[in-house]
């Protein structure tokens, strides 16, 4: 190839632009770290081991070891962690069977002319903005759960601790269901793609040996697609852990108790962050804001770990030809 001066300029230009995405993410992490620093120093490990989150906004500013905070304030994030994990766990428990069921239906059961529109509709679920899910949860799902489903569950399943009353709000269950609906398209569409890649030879061989459709699915298709399916579930988990608006519209703004049943009001990390910035800005010592930033760092660490794991699994699942498929 002819080497020209212009090529070098062009390459450098695109290189600088490509570097900008690195710059954005590094500066975002730096900003979070910088602002969280007072809280990291002042709250120490108690931040992760205590369930007592009390900004104590009526306190006066005191200075300990050069760091300002309000007297009587205490920042422990165990409640937010527990609520985040619990709502995501419910979501995964509901979304995995539903998503896999849809994926099996699309690849193994349905004829093509039925599968195409259904897979289109499942993907539509991914195109609905999360604030709309929150709105739907607020006016349809929440009241329905609170008035019909939850009293029924509490009456008939109360021997299982997490199902026993009292019912004080639609609670964790409503968040779990909304999150499940939001991550089903992720689980279903990636699993479907993975399962569709099962080699024709294995599938036909199994059929020729007399295996039924379900046996082919269970013994040939699912083992073949296993890594990718696990990856899709982990990717869904990452989405559920970080989901903000849909959950925030159903959440309490400052819940102080660890959840003991599905009906407890809740605050996930993301919902707490979106609902409390204004309150945090009223703290003259700045410790409240700093603690929320540390909370943000925790959320970042969790979601990045989960997402990276998911992408590795999915890439491994797609093996050599992973570059041919666009993942969203």
């Amino acid at each position: 190839m002819v080497k020209r001066y212009g090529d070098t300029v062009y390459k450098s230009l695109t290189l600088i632009v490509a570097a900008s995405s690195i710059l954005f993410i590094i500066s975002a992490v730096a900003v979070l770290l910088f602002n969280a620093y007072p809280s990291i120093i002042s709250n120490g490990l108690g931040f992760f081991t205590s369930a007592n989150w009390n900004p104590s906004l009526s306190g006066t500013v005191e200075t300990v070891n050069g760091i300002h905070r309000l007297t009587g304030s205490s920042f422990g994030i165990l409640v937010f962690i527990a609520d985040t994990l619990a709502s995501s766990a419910i979501a995964i428990l509901l979304a995995v069977p539903a998503g896999l069921g849809v994926a099996i239906f699309l690849t193994e059961v349905a004829p093509r002319r039925i599968a195409a529109p259904i897979s289109f509709m499942v993907e539509m679920l991914a195109g609905i903005p999360s604030v709309v899910y929150g709105f739907w949860g607020l006016i349809v799902l929440g009241p329905y759960l609170f008035n019909t489903v939850e009293p029924y569950l509490a009456e008939h399943l109360s021997f299982i601790p997490i199902f026993s009353g009292p019912i004080s709000s639609p609670g964790l269950l409503s968040a779990g269901i909304i999150l499940a609906i939001m991550i089903i398209p992720i689980v279903a569409s990636i699993s479907r793609d993975m399962m569709a890649r099962t080699p024709k030879e294995s599938r036909e061989g199994a059929k020729a040996l007399g295996l039924t459709r379900w046996e082919v699915t269970r013994r040939i298709v699912l083992p073949y697609a296993k890594t990718g399916i696990v990856g899709s579930i982990v990717l869904g988990l990452g989405r559920a852990l970080g989901e903000t608006m849909a959950v925030a519209m159903l959440a309490g703004s400052g819940v102080q108790v660890l959840p003991k049943s599905l009906y407890y009001p809740f605050s996930t990390i993301a919902s707490y962050m979106v609902l409390n910035l204004d309150a945090a800005l009223t703290d003259p010592s700045g410790m409240y804001l700093s603690a929320i930033m540390e909370l943000g760092l925790v959320l970042l660490a969790i979601t990045v770990t989960v997402n990276v794991a998911a992408r590795l699994l999915i890439k491994q699942g797609f093996a050599s030809s992973s570059e041919n498929v666009v993942r969203v």
Partner: peptide, 12 residues
Amino acid sequence: VLSGMPSILLGY
């Protein structure tokens, strides 16, 4: 990583 990052963090 950026596409998996909760958008609320970017808001902050």
